[in-house]
Every structure is written in C-alpha cells, then in structure tokens.
Design a protein around this nucleic acid. Structure first.
Lengths: 138, 138
DNA sequence: AAATAGTGTGCAACGGAAGTGCAATTATCG
DNA sequence: CGATAATTGCACTTCCGTTGCACACTATTT
C-alpha cells in the first residue's frame, strides 16, 4: 500500500484508482488547480467524476478550496495537519494576473482584524493580486 | 440638475433615466448588491442594460466590485474620493452567512503584508465571513 | 462462490451567471 | 432638421457548477 493510499484512508476516503491519480496530480502541482485543469489533465475521465472526487476530498479534509476572485473555484492539497476551518490556520493566497495562477502562501497567515461591535468573524479569505515570483523574473 | 446627475457627469457618464435610477437604487442600499438584485428591483428593464450600466459605472469609478467568495460578483458605490485601484484605499468586506449579505467596511483597511521575494502585490481582497451586526442581535 | 448491499463512475441534462452581436431607439451636435 | 454616436432591448452563446439515473465495481454476508 502506497503513501497516497494511506493518506486517503486516513481521511476515510476509499483509495480508488481514480482518486489516487487525482491525488497524485494535485500533489505534483505546486499551485492551486481549477476543476477544468483536472479535466484537461484527465481527458478520458468524466467531468462529474472529477467534480465529485474533489468534493469528497474537500469534505474529508484532503483539499481546501480557494476563491481567488477569478470566479473559478480553485483547489489545493491541505498541508499535513491543516485545519482549514479554524481561523488561526487561514493562510493567504496570491493570484498572478500574468500567468493567471494562484498559489498558497501557507506560511503567511491572515492578520487579525478588529471588527465593529456586533460583527463576529468565523472565517476569512485574503487574496493578494499582482505578479508572482516566476513572472517578475527574480 | 440633481445631485445624482452631477455625480454621473463628474465621472464622464451621461445621466440617462436608467442610470439615474440604478444609481439611486445603489445609494439607498447600504449593502453591496449583485446583478440579480438589481434585476429583480428593475424587473421591467433588460438584464443586459443593467449589466452594461454597472460595467460603465465601474469603468468610470462610480462603483467597485467585490468578490465575496459566493461566486457572485457584488457591487457597491464608491465613497467620495475612493480610489479602488490604489492599494492604500483597499477596504475590507464582511459577508454574513446568515442573511447572505455583504457589506463594505470602508473604515477598515487591509493591513500590509510582507510577501516573499519576487512577489509584487498590486491589489488585495480581504473578505471576513461570519455573522453581521444585524444578525448577531446587538 | 453466489447473493446482496453499498459505493463509485459515466452519461445526459439542467440552471444560473456572464458575456456578445446586432438591430432599434434615443440623445447630441452641427 | 439631419447625421452621428451612444444607449438600450432582444436573442443567443458559453462556461462552470450541479443533479438524477443507470450501470459497474467493491466489499460483505451467508
């Protein structure tokens, strides 16, 4: 049994062939991916299957989704021990408008914000936009 | 000539009847609105017209759009002198998952973030999610 | 090993939101 | 008034996310 299979089982996800492939794909990609990206990577597979696979992954804490402001939902593997629900675990994302890629900056947490009375924040989403490392040529 | 007409002309937008109505609608609403909201408020008008009106407003700095993570683009009137492009003018938004409304917290700016080398941020989007003032009952 | 239940996958179709092309209408200016 | 440009309405298209249903596969039970 491979590492990936173990990881899936640890999250109560049955390691089917498809799921292992998709997990591998996500692990190799350093950046966040859209459903359409997975689609073109697995042209033979059904869109629905990929959709539901990602959904299962997300429900079981294997990936988290990112709203990077493009209107297209992106996904990325959770770091080991990542608890995307908890406020203190919220890292920020960077969207490059040159290559149109979004990356997780897992080491950068979202600073705490003081809200007006009555507002209770449970979650936060911070996306910085600009030119990424790769495109700025440094 | 009314205040609204003057405002529109100041932004190089011809004050047509439709545009004045939409501006008024936006001004009355305290919260951000989606295209569909405007649509239902102006059931007689064409979707395309509303769509293009908002687009014109945005291009001319009358409204700014907000990506609140619902996947639906929201719009809100810019404050007087608001320069939504500039980083220092970026205020944050709050999305209530109870009433599903998004508000601008114009007085709260997005804190500056130190990015890794090579990353150049030109823009930022911070959305806090939770329960708003109205729904928390305080 | 056969029967059965449960889960996963493929196919087809739907729905909402965004966007485009074009014709018709309206405003603006000479 | 007539020409020209901007605005609006209508019809369509596209794209992404989602669901329902049937079949295939896997696991479990006897």
């Amino acid at each position: 049994m491979t590492e990936i299979e173990k990881t899936l089982e640890n999250h109560q996800v049955r390691p089917t062939a498809m799921r292992i492939l998709i997990y591998k794909y996500l692990a190799e990609k350093k950046i966040t991916v859209a459903l359409t990206d997975i689609e073109s990577a697995f042209a033979k597979a059904e869109r629905t299957t990929l959709y539901r696979t990602i959904k299962t992954f997300e429900e079981n804490g294997i990936v988290h989704h990112i709203e990077d402001g493009t209107g297209i939902t992106k996904y990325a593997l959770c770091e080991p021990g990542c608890n995307c629900d908890l406020e203190q675990d919220l890292h920020l994302h960077f969207h490059c408008h040159n290559c149109d890629e979004t990356v997780c900056l897992t080491e950068h947490k979202i600073p705490h914000i003081n809200l007006p009375d009555g507002y209770v924040a449970e979650n936060a989403n911070l996306v910085l936009k600009g030119i990424c490392e790769k495109c700025s040529g440094r």
